[in-house]
């Protein structure tokens, strides 16, 4: 298995506070990885660094062992094949549910291509397929602003899938979802692994257990430990900083 994403001794501070501290992490192609850790551990900041939103002060971030992600901006990372679901669900509120998906679909992103774009039948079919998957088929013509918090989470997952990224960065997808929905999300993410590489951040331990994958524990911007969920939850340090709270 080849390493898909590699963080190598990454540092980043904000006003003297080291949000990311010598962070090293390797994720294989097709792997499903859960990242857990207390609030402020730097999980979201890590995703910001991978997607070019935040530049590291030092350290390397490598894509497919060849592309230097620290030199690439947000749009560039998306074009490489990195898709992101945000902690705070952000959908385009004035657009309809369907349009949100349509705009996310993998397609040419240039100004001229979008100016003259006409929706193809294949695209229309894919949109319907995705809407059915995230169970928003009945709401497709409603403005996204009308959706509940949980539905927005689903819409954002649909938008993420529409991009058909190679790597999915999924930040707290289960927040605002019912237990049944949470389990369905875990199932969906598991089904993506293999074909896609997936990194999931989540606080919900039942959800992480359902993912049934390797877990990385982040604390103060550094990897505390890594391994199966049972392995890391037996770690006294992890219990002290996170699980035992």
């Amino acid at each position: 298995m080849s390493v898909h994403l590699l963080l190598d001794g990454v540092n980043r501070s904000f006003d003297g506070y080291k949000a990311i501290n010598d962070l090293s992490l390797a994720v294989d192609k097709g792997e499903l990885r859960a990242v857990i850790g207390p609030n402020g551990a730097g999980k979201t900041t890590m995703m910001d660094i991978i997607t070019g939103k935040t530049r590291p002060d030092s350290g390397g971030v490598w894509w497919n062992q060849t592309v230097d992600l620290t030199k690439i901006d947000e749009a560039g990372s998306a074009r490489l094949g990195i898709g992101r679901k945000f902690q705070k669900p952000t959908v385009f509120e004035t657009h309809s549910v369907e349009e949100n998906i349509a705009l996310s679909l993998k397609a040419e992103r240039s100004v001229l291509a979008t100016l003259f774009h006409r929706q193809t039948e294949a695209e229309a079919a894919r949109i319907t397929e995705l809407l059915e998957l995230v169970r928003l088929e009945g709401d497709r013509h409603r403005p996204a602003a009308d959706l509940s918090h949980g539905q927005k989470q689903w819409l954002e997952i649909g938008m993420l899938l529409a991009q058909d990224p190679e790597l999915l960065l999924v930040d707290e997808p289960a927040a605002g979802m019912t237990d049944a929905e949470t389990m369905r999300t875990a199932e969906l993410l598991r089904s993506l692994a293999g074909k896609h590489t997936v990194i999931v951040v989540e606080h919900d331990m039942d959800f992480v257990r359902a993912l049934d994958c390797r877990v990385t524990v982040l604390h103060q911007g550094h990897v505390l430990t890594e391994g199966s969920l049972d392995h890391v939850s037996a770690n006294p340090e992890v219990i002290e900083v996170y699980l035992g709270r």
Binding site: K53, A75, A78, R84, F92, T94, L103, T114, H117
Partner: peptide
């Protein structure tokens, strides 16, 4: 057009639009 819808995306959530791969500046 699709471009017009992207303009509205930029208006409402510029940063999010970038993460979808659209070069907002252009």
């Amino acid at each position: 057009s699709k471009l017009g819808m992207i303009l509205v995306c930029i208006r409402d959530a510029e940063s999010r639009t970038r993460f979808m791969g659209y070069r907002v500046e252009g």
